[in-house]
Nucleic acid binder design. Sequence first.
DNA 1: CTGTTAGCGCATTCAT
DNA 2: ATGAATGCGCTAACAG
Lengths: 336, 336
Amino acid sequence: MRARIEDVAAAAGVSIKTVSRVFNREPNVREETRLKVEEAARQLKYRPNSSARSLAGRRSYLISLLYDNPSPNYVMEVIEGVLAACEQAHYGLTLRPIDFSRRGHVESVETLIAQYRPDGLVLTPPLTDDGPLLRRLREMDVRYATISAKRDNAGIGATLDERAAVADMTAHVASLGHRRIGHITGHRSHGARVWRLAGYLDGLRRSGIEADPELVVEGEFSFESGIAGARRLLDMDDPPTAIFGANDDTACGVLYEAAARGLKVPEHLSVFGFDDTPMSRQVWPSLSTVRQPSREMGRIAAQQLLNAIAGHDPARMVRVPYQLQIRHSTGPVPQG
Amino acid sequence: MRARIEDVAAAAGVSIKTVSRVFNREPNVREETRLKVEEAARQLKYRPNSSARSLAGRRSYLISLLYDNPSPNYVMEVIEGVLAACEQAHYGLTLRPIDFSRRGHVESVETLIAQYRPDGLVLTPPLTDDGPLLRRLREMDVRYATISAKRDNAGIGATLDERAAVADMTAHVASLGHRRIGHITGHRSHGARVWRLAGYLDGLRRSGIEADPELVVEGEFSFESGIAGARRLLDMDDPPTAIFGANDDTACGVLYEAAARGLKVPEHLSVFGFDDTPMSRQVWPSLSTVRQPSREMGRIAAQQLLNAIAGHDPARMVRVPYQLQIRHSTGPVPQG
DNA sequence: CTGTTAGCGCATTCAT
DNA sequence: ATGAATGCGCTAACAG
């Protein structure tokens, strides 16, 4: 019923190995032969059976995406990008949600590997910085690419200069006259926490503002932590006139708390975030933030991984550009 | 290096067929033999190679999720649920984003099937109602389960009584004194559009309100269509005092437009949506909406599909309960 | 540049 | 209740 490689070979009048060569883009096939094979395959609607390919080729033609991220938007964008890269390379994707905070997450990855034999993994934060996991992967000799890893000068994958981005954004807000700019940090396990905090401090310094440690409060990249952080900051005797939430969720928490208090944004308080999630455009006022091209980063990381697997082009760590999105939540410092 | 079935057989002193029987829970194995095999497998850390299993067994141990949905939150929740069901059944999941609006989407599914041979598919709206696709699936004899299909009395999967839910919610808002309640509909291709519109009309009728066709405007389940719809409704000579956005994105668009006009919610305008997305809690004021347990629906649909594949328990269409979430965007009708 | 010959690791007859 | 033989559809050496 379903066409097999030998049917295509027969139809094209060649051997099955030649068909295999065509489909795997191997060299040593005459253009004319290739066309014959492709035509036959099209007519028969031939699709290689991936199980047979995997079994014979000792490769799964599969990569896995590991994630432990509370932000569905982020994960979906990364998935889209990874899928785009996979499709091009005729690779499949398996997903693995990991509960990073639980014991046994390394073992969960081991099971995944034993069962599906992915040819490589794509890691998202904070798994990118999980020492035990990375160590085990190297022991097992499993390739991986990272997205936004803390150590962004090693390995392969995609990163963005979050530190510079936040510094630029902070300096921009300072240029609007703000001198007391608060920051609600990200979760301790993320490299992003470190980069964004450092960028915030860079931005202040560049603007000739001395950092006030009181204005930096703990957060964890969540909406709730944005509310809690905003409360602490706004309850101060000398509250900040601008607040940087370590990501958009956090910043939206700040917007929420400001609205709950009847504080107008940006007239009374400026707010900015990071990520450029869809929500940042859909709140009122819309949120000033840093655009992080997550889909593109997923695509690039998967692409680098697939390059490494195929052994073509030397794979590397690609730095993607950021972009400030100045919208309506930032404005001049209030007078008085 | 990696243990194979024959290694286990040798270690246990049995034939490979016996090992196969144990791993596939087939009958005709003495308890004593079973234990021996299991012990040997554990020692050798044996994991069946899924490619070989698929190839020999003509089953992929894989199901595919097809989606074409602009809402990342929704898709992620469904994915989580489906993954949960898969894990339990030792099944893998492949994803297939479909561009429903483009020609050739049926062929894209055919390619997926030819290549990965999934043992079944899970469909999300609006693919659940795509005639040509469904017809082709039946022709190819591919099983599928649906989530929120338009025809929810046939096939297997999960549904929710959206019509009753919206009727309840609409009646609740009417009970707050509102008499002019507007509705921004969903996209034409979705069954949800029909159910929710019908529920809205039911709710009005139940509250003794005559429906005004002018108060129903076209939308498409997007934030932008919420803004556009709100503009049309609020620009009317006798504007509604409450607006039902066909989903939360749409309702958030209404909130946005209201804020842009300086209209206070719920003092001047009540707004409600559908889905209970995270955003509905994170906007100000928080959105009254209907909770749809998407994760659970994904789990159930996958579960039913896996049941059908295994041939156990007769699979069916499961109706899951809804829940009204009354938050801060709905309130008494303004006086005067 | 192309074809031939062996398996990949397992499930599946059919014996016993 | 268990085992031996056959092949799933393809890739991987090696020949030509």
